[in-house]
């Protein structure tokens, strides 16, 4: 564990708390892509079921339980409690374009050709693109509530912080995880446009609006 990874994980944790806060206080999931949230459930379940056979630390296990539990809870809120505020007609990204390529990539790139390792690779690839339906929705509507952008920023910062973590680990432990690093760089790259608008507009007190 190093500082970059810890701050990254805390940022990830914060992003979910911000999202829950947004949904609970506005009693609405407007502006949130159900598809992205469903993909995160798939990511966490595929990757964190190793809870049952791999013990790393109490921290690690507690975070895994939290991420699986909170992502399922968010789906429940969107699908049942605040269903009327969820508008599927603007959440139109075709997720099979993500699921199928990720499944194929995980069969080719994995550290061991066995179900658990293939699932791990699949979750890494899927996580890297899971935000696309959300970004696509943002692009379509052209604007977002400030709190939604804080959620996305925290999520992006989490991934960005994993990059210095890998560099640090490479020099201190000599470890390199090519699958996680490649997917992680792609994932962070997807946020660059968003970050630009977030830092130049939202953090200056302006509304998040994309140029027409």
């Amino acid at each position: 564990m190093n500082l970059f990874r810890l701050l990254g994980d805390l940022s990830h944790l914060a992003s979910i708390l911000v999202l829950l806060h947004k949904i609970q206080t506005s009693r609405s999931c407007r502006g949130i892509s159900f598809k992205t949230q469903a993909l995160y459930v798939a990511v966490f379940v595929a990757r964190y079921l190793d809870l049952f056979w791999r013990y790393i630390s109490l921290y690690n296990s507690a975070m895994k339980v939290f991420f699986i539990g909170s992502s399922c809870y968010i789906l429940y809120l969107m699908k049942y409690r605040y269903r009327p505020t969820n508008d599927p007609s603007i959440d139109t990204f075709r997720i099979e374009y993500l699921l199928v390529p990720c499944a194929i990539l995980s069969l080719i790139f994995n550290y061991n050709f066995m179900p658990t390792e293939i699932l791990w690779s699949f979750s890494i690839f899927l996580e890297s693109v899971a935000i696309l339906p959300q970004l696509f929705m943002l692009q379509r509507t052209g604007e977002a509530e400030a709190i939604t952008t804080h959620y996305l920023a925290a999520l992006g910062i989490y991934r960005a912080l994993y990059i210095p973590n890998w560099i640090y680990r490479y020099f201190t432990e000599g470890v390199i995880d090519p699958i996680a690093v490649t997917a992680g760089i792609v994932q962070t790259g997807l946020y660059l446009d968003f970050f630009y608008v977030y830092f130049t507009k939202v953090l200056q007190g302006q509304k998040f609006e994309l140029p027409a």
Partner: peptide, 10 residues
Amino acid sequence: SATPDAHDEL
């Protein structure tokens, strides 16, 4: 351990 398949990251 220090191999990629240790998967100690979240």
